[in-house]
Nucleic acid binder design. Structure first.
Lengths: 227, 227
DNA sequence: CGTCTCATTGACACCCTTCAAACGAAGTGG
DNA sequence: CCACTTCGTTTGAAGGGTGTCAATGAGACG
């Protein structure tokens, strides 16, 4: 109880001021304490060039990180799903923006606590580094996708990836809009939409409303991604 | 001297067998020992899915890391210039290939030595993590480029980046071929060539042979990248 | 039921790719 | 020194995939 107040007093950020009502201080698997914070759909978690006070783990919902150009062109670098860590992909200052894709609850940890822990606990340091490595490996695959794959290949890869990462029984429920998908895959919203319909016409997927996708022919889909 | 033999005996990799004649064991700024190894133009440093025995620092020359699809489409994720570290961008197994772009000398360190050092020396661990973070930040910018920028913007960004990173007096000497540039920027060789000529016709750059580029109008060039 | 937001569909344009040929520089052998 | 080859680059013409612009359709919500 007192620890909660200490943290609250130390960290003067909107995150911690906005912490969930009644939320007590807890410990993250990474090994440091923090608090739960809620964000509603579209709300910003942190902005570009903002000093990086906190590191976050998604508890529920989805977060997108992105870069944006002066004229509005946006590239989403990653979607973070429940259980995943973000905000670590930078040094002292954020070079990305982060926003809640859906209503989201995150676990906010103070960066200082993490680096302090890493300074003494090698296993923790290794874990932290592993998070960054994971992001890097995914971004390398993402570069291949953005630089060299067709719209069909991009979308199929995306759907397969989501099916793997989201709790999917018979169909995937996409948490993000077509615009988000487009900005993630380096396409336009129209191309995403058209490609989605075409995949349906080809019998590869089945759409039940625009957010619900059933992967109808996994073999054919995997052939496209492997190509 | 004896340390050199120990390392040579421990590490059974082509890298260490191929070490430069007469090269003694030295210590890298990262804090571990290793040996110099030479690669000639086009030679592979490591392949995809090869176990990651070593981490490298470029001493002279240039190295490219890339991913390649079954049908030959290639995406270069990064060029590593003199002084830069590569091979760390992965966990235990490489997910990229690395090749020498020019005749290249690298400093090869055993991954085990690095992780062992990181386990005791926090500053070293922090440095290692910093290398990965640097790669991640660059790959995020690269994603924005690949996903959202035009051929002109891509090439201008590339030239500015090279001018900044390479020792450039009045003109930049590009160490890589048009094909490499194309595969780095997610374009075709023809588009790179055409865009290059157009930039010259517009008076933004000046070509003296295809490898030598003078940035004629820095202000205009920076306007394009900032757009 | 009306409004709002988002998704889909259509027509058209354009940037980049593809295919092909010419050009140029570097190296080799006569 | 000069043909000749080879490899990489440049240039041209044509086509296609994706973007742009615009209109229609479909849910969600009050």
């Amino acid at each position: 109880m007192s620890a909660a107040y200490i943290i609250e007093a130390e960290v003067i950020t909107p995150d911690f001021r906005r912490r969930s009502e009644g939320g007590l201080t807890e410990r993250d698997p990474l090994g440091v304490e923090g608090v739960r914070v809620d964000y509603c759909r579209g709300e910003e978690v942190f902005g570009e060039e903002e000093s990086a006070e906190c590191v976050y783990r998604v508890l529920s919902g989805v977060v997108r990180t992105y870069k944006i150009l002066a004229d509005g062109r946006r590239q989403i670098s990653e979607f973070y799903l429940a259980g995943e860590v973000f905000g670590l992909e930078t040094a002292d200052q954020h070079v990305l923006c982060a926003e809640a894709v859906t209503d989201t609850q995150v676990f906010a940890m103070r960066r200082k606590s993490l680096t302090a822990l890493a300074a003494t606990d090698c296993a923790a340091a290794r874990k932290l580094w592993g998070v960054t490595l994971h992001d890097l490996r995914r971004s390398q695959e993402h570069m291949l996708l953005l630089g060299r794959k067709s719209a069909h290949e991009r979308l199929v890869w995306f759907l397969m990836d989501m099916a793997m990462r989201l709790p999917a029984d018979r169909e995937v429920t996409l948490p993000m809009s077509r615009q988000d998908i487009a900005d993630y895959l380096g396409l336009t919203i129209e191309t995403v939409s058209r490609t989605m319909t075409q995949l349906q016409e080809d019998g590869l997927i089945e759409l039940h409303g625009c957010r619900h996708v059933a992967l109808r022919d996994r073999v054919a889909l995997e052939l496209i991604t492997a190509a």
